[in-house]
Design a protein around this nucleic acid. Structure first.
Lengths: 148, 148
DNA sequence: ATGTAAATGAAAACGATTATTGTTTTTGAA
DNA sequence: TTCAAAAACAATAATCGTTTTCATTTACAT
């Protein structure tokens, strides 16, 4: 959160412009291709670094999956997940079935609204993140996977 | 959804057992390491394939990020996202601010419950998926990115 | 027992991202 | 102004998780 000395270079201006032109949350690759038309010599790494820096400085917002790895669950019932930033584990959010159902109802009604506006909703993901009971309770125990 | 001719082979039985032993949504790698102790010659691809097949046949559940790529957004306000399985675009869910706020309230109160149970909640992700207005309205227009 | 489809293991290929290298700008103090 | 230090650049190689390929083995219905 320090006062930044980020330079809004020519490349970054173009990247910012093209990001806005593209709209709808483009991938890095999509931005790269758009920018490349105006700056044929730009490199992919510059685009990555610039988007990173621009988001760190509040110009844009980064959307990244909490966790990119595939995981598997032997629990087939409906439940929500909690991602612990400290130990990297994914636990089931500590909710009773009635509470989970409550959320589901609320979200289902929102889905109806979305469908009224021309979309077809097939499902949703809701996950929480923070520190799990184990890590929040005792002292941190050096989780192997926390990258952020 | 056809009647499956999946074979519950020796390897798959072990994989299933170890998945249950591990609990808490292990990554493929974690399963691999556990299984390897009992089947030293097993290969990573077998683990990947088996977990895939087991989930397709309802024995377990796969947790995979809707989209693994990083994306960037010039909209910094609070809003939810909609992932279109057809064209691969991520759009803003078509909700008014009041509606979004409504959800946020509901989820905030759930967060409180989770915190009451020893967790620290720093945030959450809620995203919807299905077909966007454009793809649901007209006929499909051969989206480049739909992989699932 | 035999034939066929499915599953396996090893290795290579893959796509997205990050790190490294050497070079070019830019900045701002002397 | 000029010049060293910092920042950004382009190109490339390296990494990570995952998928594919392919030759071999296994399961199982006939």
């Amino acid at each position: 959160m320090e006062k930044s000395q980020m330079r809004l270079t020519y490349q970054r201006k173009i990247i910012l412009e093209e990001l806005k032109n593209l709209g709808n949350h483009p991938t890095v690759d999509e931005v790269y291709l758009a920018v490349k038309k105006r700056l044929p010599r730009i490199s992919m790494s510059t685009v990555y670094r610039s988007l990173e820096v621009l988001s760190k400085n509040g110009f844009i917002k980064k959307l990244e999956p909490i966790d990119t790895q595939k995981r598997f669950d032997d629990n087939v019932g409906v439940h929500y997940h909690f991602y612990c930033l400290n130990c990297g584990k994914i636990k089931d959010a500590p909710l009773h079935e009635s509470e989970s159902k409550e959320i589901e109802e609320a979200i289902k009604s929102i889905e109806k609204v979305i469908e009224k506006r021309g979309y077809k909703v097939n499902g949703y993901t809701l996950e929480f993140w923070g520190k799990c009971d184990h890590c929040e309770g005792g002292e941190s125990y050096g989780g192997e996977k926390s990258k952020k």
